[in-house]
Simulated assay, not measured.
Amino acid sequence: MFIETPWTTLLLVLNLLISGYALLVDPALIDRLAFRPAHILRGREYYRMITAGFVHVGWAHLLFNMITLFFFGRPMEVLLGPVRFLLIYFGAELAAHGFSLWLHRNRPMYAAVGASGAISGLLFGYCLFFPFDRIYLFFFPVGIPAVVFAIGYVVLSIYAVQRGVQDGGIAHEAHLGGALGGLLLTLLLEPQALTIFLRQLGL
């Protein structure tokens, strides 16, 4: 299983090691790697656009992201191969942070961490190939079709961004940017994705 998806496995291991080290040994590492618009724009610390995706603010944050990466990253890597998989993952992360950078360019104290943007991109790419697969949230017994979840996800994120809300520390704008980035990259890298999606919708 892990041999078939080496890059998903590596991303899981890196996230667990780096976040685990930061949470247990060196909490200051979270701030040094975090996405901070002021440091990126004024200090030219562009590495933060990537490194922020490898640190998390707590174990629940880390665990939820890694479970999502495990379940959606593996089928995407098998389906698309390692190169396209990595382009979507890191491209979605850059899209997530690029959108956040634009929104929070004048907020010097803003900071964010986590792999949610990159994972959102994989999730939305997955929806193109498997729109009616069931997604189960927080062990809720009734699964939600992937395409319904995706639409609801976008609507909620847009609403939250417009209201400037970050409930529970969730950076909705990063989720939205990553999701749209992953969707567009999947369509670009696999042109048949749209045909597959429309066929499953009966169009």
Rank of each mutant, 00 (worst) to 15 (best):
L103T: 05
L69F: 04
H97P: 00
L86I: 10
A112C: 13
L156F: 10
A60F: 14
R134L: 15
F132H: 14
F140A: 13
T68E: 08
G98L: 14
P145C: 11
M76S: 02
C127K: 02
I151Q: 01
F139W: 15
H56Q: 15
A111Q: 15
H61K: 04
L87P: 01
L87R: 10
W102C: 05
S157A: 14
F130A: 13
V55E: 04
F85D: 01
F124Y: 02
G117C: 08
F149Q: 06
F64R: 03
G81C: 09
R134D: 06
V55Y: 01
V148H: 06
A160Y: 07
I50G: 01
A111D: 11
P145S: 12
E93N: 11
M76G: 00
A96W: 07
F138H: 07
G81T: 07
L86W: 06
L123N: 00
V142C: 02
T68F: 15
C127G: 07
G91Q: 09
G125K: 04
I88F: 03
Y126K: 00
P131A: 09
I135C: 01
L69V: 11
V55M: 04
I151T: 12
G143I: 02
L86H: 09
L62Q: 09
I144F: 06
H104C: 01
V55S: 07
P141G: 11
R107E: 15
I67C: 08
S116N: 06
F71S: 00
T68A: 15
I88H: 01
P82H: 13
A112G: 15
H104A: 06
E77A: 08
N65K: 08
G73L: 07
F139C: 04
G152W: 05
L62V: 13
T51N: 08
M76K: 00
E77W: 03
H97S: 13
I119F: 02
L63V: 15
L80D: 03
G114Q: 08
L80G: 02
Y159E: 05
L63T: 12
A146G: 02
L128H: 06
L137S: 02
R134P: 06
W59H: 09
A111M: 15
S116A: 12
Y89N: 03
